[in-house]
């Protein structure tokens, strides 16, 4: 009896601890988010009056019938995957190198600090820098054509779809791989070294340990990285916009992302808040759906055990 009371009293603290979050959320976030969902079912327009008239699912239907929205969807996925995959590989390799107990590398702190630097820059700054570098008579062309002769004629990189896309992917990777590595390292340092010690006693190699111990134990942190990258990637916006210097991601809308599409609908001359809200909602559901899959895939063995146990309990 005593233990049960104690447990209840202790658990009451759960409510107290989450109270600040809930209060602030209700005050500041609930209305805007709910409003967005609501607006997605209207034809609200900034100039002609909000909230406008309710038009049911029309916004969603026209978006899915809109080849440009579909293109934006494809671009968003392309640009995200093209940046996330190299970024993840790079970050995992780095994290493994930095937390390796057998081959101790010097100066890991220093390197980590440097690799995070690109993330500290404002996207505006980064885009401006790269734009400056990539012009027809700019430094990169001068280097490739004049100094080294690797190319015979200069190339107006930002006027070509593949080049622009590649540049966006490169910049995104460049800006985020350091942060990802840091998160992975902080996760790795939380793995008890006793696991590795016993494995080494058993004669396991570095790579084997990495794949059989590190990665599985890193699952929660990996999940975090995946999901946050997914959410960020689906919302990718500033780099493609600022680099291509046109609201619709020229040339020929090759770097138009869903978020840029949304902005274009929200701003002048469309002012179509309802349509923009619908894009937001679609983005949300896409992210949710993929995130659900990721959660499934990354369930740790503990959680699987817990679920099994619960099933046994209810059935038994």
């Amino acid at each position: 009896m005593n233990t049960k009371n104690k447990k209840l009293v202790k658990d009451y603290w759960g409510y107290i601890f989450i109270a600040p979050f809930i209060i602030i959320f209700i005050i500041f976030a609930l209305y805007p988010i709910a409003n967005t969902f609501f607006l997605s079912f209207t034809n609200a327009n900034i100039i002609h009056g909000m909230p406008g008239n309710i038009i049911g699912f029309n916004n969603f239907i026209s978006l899915f019938n809109d080849p440009m929205f579909i293109r934006a969807l494809q671009n968003t996925w392309l640009l995200w995957l093209g940046n996330f995959i190299p970024q993840m590989i790079l970050a995992l390799v780095l994290a493994a190198m930095f937390s390796s107990t057998t081959f101790k590398l010097k100066g890991t702190g220093f390197f980590k600090a440097i690799y995070y630097l690109p993330n500290l820059l404002m996207p505006v700054t980064v885009a401006a820098l790269f734009q400056h570098y990539l012009t027809l008579h700019g430094p990169i062309n001068s280097f490739l054509v004049g100094t080294t002769g690797l190319m015979s004629e200069p190339r107006n990189f930002l006027q070509f779809a593949t080049d622009t896309r590649f540049t966006v992917m490169f910049i995104q990777t460049w800006m985020w791989f350091g942060q990802t590595a840091i998160v992975l390292v902080s996760g790795m340092t939380s793995i008890s070294p006793s696991y590795y010690e016993s494995a080494m006693v058993d004669g396991a190699s570095q790579t084997r340990m990495f794949f059989k111990i590190t990665l599985p134990l890193l699952k929660p942190v990996l999940l975090f990285v995946l999901v946050t990258s997914l959410v960020g990637g689906m919302q990718m916006f500033d780099i493609p916009l600022l680099l291509s210097d046109g609201p619709l991601g020229p040339p020929d809308m090759s770097v138009l992302t869903m978020n840029m599409f949304m902005r274009a609908r929200m701003n002048h001359p469309a002012n179509a808040i309802g349509s923009a809200a619908a894009v937001s909602v679609i983005l949300f559901f896409i992210s949710s759906f993929v995130a659900l899959i990721l959660f499934r895939v990354f369930r740790t063995d503990e959680q699987k055990q817990q679920k099994k146990q619960r099933r046994v309990e209810t059935n038994g």
């Binding site: 988010i33 409003n35 999901v227 949304m262 929200m266 808040i273 949710s288 959660f295």
Partner: peptide, 23 residues
């Protein structure tokens, strides 16, 4: 509650902004 928090991480920031601005 936790599921709700996870869902909130998936909300795109942008239009939230206009709604927040209005509010």
């Amino acid at each position: 509650f936790y599921g709700f928090i996870l869902a909130m991480t998936l909300v795109p920031m942008n239009l939230y902004l206009i709604g927040f601005f209005q509010y």
